[in-house]
Nucleic acid binder design. Structure first.
Length: 417
RNA sequence: CGGGCUGUAGUAUAACGGUAGUACGAGACGUUUGGGACGUUUUAGUCCCGGUUCGAAUCCGGGCAGCCCGACCA
């Protein structure tokens, strides 16, 4: 993509309201645009990142046997009445009436909808287990939005729901999803701790939050550096000693970027989602649910991967793999860079070409550092004298020259890292 | 939802109750080109409604919006 055509106005200053690093960099880089408090548009750079995160999550969900579906955003009141959450869910539902006077809510989560879907299809133990997930816009009538994408009123979430015959089977799958979640986080350049947490209004008997340690976080977690124990401070109060190994605990701020719930029969019982077991008995299905907020994850990645100049995207979620930057406006440099760009495109490389003639090198470099593409290629008179291109990784200081003839091989090996 | 703060060009900031100004940005032309250039020039603003006043960005009342703390969450 030619940067002169990219729909993005990269800014030198962040809006004064922005406080968190991720909010500042996302706003300055024009990844997102705020429409109202807690409501954001994703612009081309931001949406590219979002889609890469989405694809990682989809791959990992498919890898644990999930089948992708798409549930409605408009959710009828009747299902919420079955569990009582029409009134009790917090933050409250966005509710409204259709033209016939029927009440609806914009879906903030989908336990009721999917339990209804499944109870009309799952009849026998032969239909279990079953793993269904979706990636969809969620709406939450939050009291307060904060930190740019960290806490918003409309966001895209991956929600996976699992259905089992037995608690044992459900818990085994729960552990499997936890591992898949850790793979997702790792691919996103994050190293979270899974902490035992309070299930809250989603409910259930057990839950784990995936916490990324960060000063921006709204949560506090206790971590034992010796045995690896981690707990949410709300659940464990302010204990000082590790309950597992008696070492001293340390307290950290953290961002809750995903949450897994062992639901048991919390939804299947009131909604009568039963199956017939091998002996012919009727039993409520055992459920689990597992959510990741994609926008929050995107912000969290920045909180954990940045420097003073801007974002340092992990390769798998970067908006582009390569940033090709000509320096100097000479016809020779332009022609050479055009040629390199064409060959990179032919090789199906994911490249952003900063072809803007009116920008000085300083501005191009500053903006490149801000938007954080992992590998920068610079072409100038200086490099062309040596028939070379300069390569610099965003997370390193050093630059090196690579001969034009060897460029594509070099880039292929970089892409594999 | 409780408490607090703030609303002036796209952004950041000035203006005693008396001509709305400056910088950056954006546009045009020219000169520049290895770390956020330079000259000339153009552009654009007092959140909304009401009140006080000869006169309101400024004082008062009410809305609306945004932000922060709390609570809650992915």
């Amino acid at each position: 993509m030619r940067q002169s055509e990219l729909f993005a106005k990269i800014k030198k200053e962040a809006p004064k309201d922005a406080e968190s690093i991720s909010h500042k960099y996302l706003a300055r880089g024009d990844f997102i645009d705020q429409a109202a408090s807690g409501i954001y548009s994703f612009l081309p750079l931001g949406w590219r990142v979002h889609k890469k995160i989405e694809n990682i999550i989809r791959q990992e969900m498919l890898s644990v046997g999930g089948q992708e579906i798409f549930l409605p955003v408009l959710t009828p009141k009747k299902f919420w009445l079955e569990t009582g959450r029409w009134q009790t869910i917090d933050p409250p539902l966005f509710k409204f009436k259709d033209r016939h006077g029927s009440e609806l809510a914009l879906g903030p989560t989908h336990e009721e909808i999917i339990t209804d879907l499944v109870r009309r299809r799952v009849k026998s133990y032969r239909d279990l287990p079953l793993y269904l997930f979706q990636i969809q816009d969620k709406f939450r009538n939050e009291m307060r939005a904060t930190g740019g994408l960290l806490r918003v009123r409309e966001f895209i979430m991956k929600d996976l729901y699992s259905f089992h015959q037995s608690p044992k089977d459900a818990k085994e799958f729960y552990e499997k999803v936890k591992k898949a979640y850790l793979r997702i986080f790792k691919r996103c350049g994050l190293n979270p701790v899974a902490v035992e947490a309070d299930p809250g209004t989603i409910g259930g008997e057990m839950s784990h939050e995936f916490m990324v340690l960060s000063e921006t976080g709204e949560d506090k977690v206790l971590v034992c550096k010796k045995c690896g124990f981690a707990g949410n401070i709300e659940k464990f109060q302010d204990i000082k000693i590790c309950p597992k190994c008696q070492s001293n605990l340390e307290k950290f701020s953290a961002i809750e970027s995903a949450h897994a719930f062992y639901l048991g029969t919390k939804y299947s019982s009131p909604m009568v989602a039963n199956f017939i077991d091998k002996k012919g008995g009727q039993n409520p299905v055992i459920m689990g649910c597992y959510g990741i907020g994609l926008g929050r994850l995107m912000a969290t990645i920045i909180e954990a991967n940045h420097d003073q100049r801007g974002i340092v995207w992990p390769i798998e979620v970067a908006p582009f793999a390569l940033h090709l930057i000509p320096v100097g406006g000479s016809a020779k440099v332009t022609a050479a860079t055009d040629k390199i760009y064409d060959s990179l495109k032919k090789a199906a490389m994911d490249v952003l070409y900063d072809d803007r003639v009116e920008k000085t090198p300083g501005e191009k470099f500053a903006e490149a550092d801000l938007i954080g593409i992992p590998t920068r290629l610079v072409v100038s008179e200086k490099t062309l004298e040596k028939n070379s291109v300069e390569i610099k990784k965003r997370n390193e200081q050093k630059t090196r020259l690579v001969r034009l003839a060897k460029l594509s091989n070099q880039l292929l090996s970089l892409a594999k890292q």
